[in-house]
Simulated assay, not measured.
Amino acid sequence: MRLLIISGRSGSGKSTALHVLEDVGFTCIDNLPASLLPTLIRQVRSHGDKSDSAYAVSIDARNDHADLKEFPDFVLALRQQGLDCQLLYFDADEGTLLKRFSETRRKHPLSNDQIDLRAAIDQESELLSPIASIADLTIDSSHLSLHQLRDMVKQRVAGREAPGMAVLFQSFGFKHGPATDCDLVFDVRCLPNPHWNNSLRPLTGQDPAVAEFLSSHQDVVDMLDDLESYLQRWLPKFADDNRSYMTIGIGCTGGQHRSVYITEQLYKRFEPRFGNVQLRHRELRND
C-alpha cells in the first residue's frame, strides 16, 4: 500500500493534486478527519492489501486542532510500521492566496463574521505548522500556473514508479522572491552576468550563445565543478536517510541566464546517476 497525505493552506493546490492523482489511479479522499485515517488503513489491510494499491488522502485545517498537533507522531508511527507513506504540503505566499480567493470569490473555510480573509490565512498557517514541519515534499504554487502545477504533481509524485529519492534541479530569480520550497539553495549571483551583454540580454541560459559566454569564464567552471562535487558527496547521504524528495534551487538575479545555465548543467551531470531526476526553470514561462 502506498499512502500520500496531502495537506496545505486553502487555495494552494490541494484539490488540483487530488484530481491529478485520481486520474493516474490513486483512490482519493478529500477532507478526511485525521482521526479516521487509522480506521481507513486497517480497513484496507483487512481486505488484503495489494502492494500496488495507492491512496491519497487530504488532511486540512478543518480538522480538530488536537488531532493536527498529534498528526506528526501518527505519521512517524506509520513509517515505523513500514508503511510507504509520504506527506506532501502545498503552499503559496499570502499575496497569491488573497488574489486567488478574490478572483474565485470562494469563502475561506476558516473565515467568518469575526475573522477576515487575511486573518483566516494566517490562522490556517499556524494550525497546519505541525504538518508542514514534517512534510517530505513542499510545493510552493505561487509561481505555478494550473497547467504547471498539474505537470509537477504528475512528474514528482505520481511518476515515482520505484523507491528511491526523486531529485529536482530548479532555477529561480531572487528578484522574483526566494525559492521557499527548496531543500538546498545555491546563490550564483557572483558569476559573470550575461545581462550586461546587449546581444545576450534577451536570451536565456538554454541558448548556446549564453552557454558559450558562461563556460568561457573560469569562475563559472569552478562553481559548477564545486557544486557537482558537493552534491555528488551529499545527495547519497540524504537518500540513505530515507528522503523521498530533494529539491535543489539555483538562484541568480533574474532567473534567466546564470541560474538556468548552471541548473541545466547539473541536471545533465546527475540525470544518469539517479533514477528520478527532474528539471524546472521557475522564471521561464515556456517551461
Rank of each mutant, 00 (worst) to 15 (best):
I121T: 00
C28I: 14
D136F: 03
G48Q: 15
V57N: 01
L127M: 05
L231P: 05
E161K: 11
D140C: 03
R243N: 07
F169R: 02
L279F: 08
G177S: 04
H108E: 09
N242R: 14
M165C: 13
A66K: 15
M152H: 08
I59K: 03
L37I: 14
G249E: 02
P192A: 04
P33I: 04
I29S: 04
Q148H: 07
V185Y: 06
L4C: 01
G25K: 06
L110F: 00
L117F: 07
N198Y: 04
P192M: 10
D287V: 10
L200S: 09
E161Q: 15
A56C: 06
T204K: 10
T263G: 12
L76F: 11
D64K: 09
G159Y: 04
I6C: 07
H47I: 08
R280G: 07
A119H: 11
D241E: 13
A119M: 10
R273Y: 05
R273V: 09
A120S: 09
P202K: 04
H281E: 02
D113H: 09
D30G: 08
T138P: 00
K99T: 12
T39N: 13
L224C: 09
E103R: 15
V75N: 03
H217K: 10
C28K: 03
V277C: 12
P130L: 11
E94V: 05
V185I: 13
Q256H: 01
D219I: 10
R269E: 10
L214E: 03
D287H: 09
I121P: 03
L144F: 10
Q232H: 15
A17G: 03
P236R: 05
L87T: 14
S53P: 02
S46E: 15
H281P: 08
S133V: 01
G275W: 02
L68F: 07
M1I: 12
S7E: 06
R269A: 10
I139E: 00
D181G: 13
Y267F: 13
D151F: 07
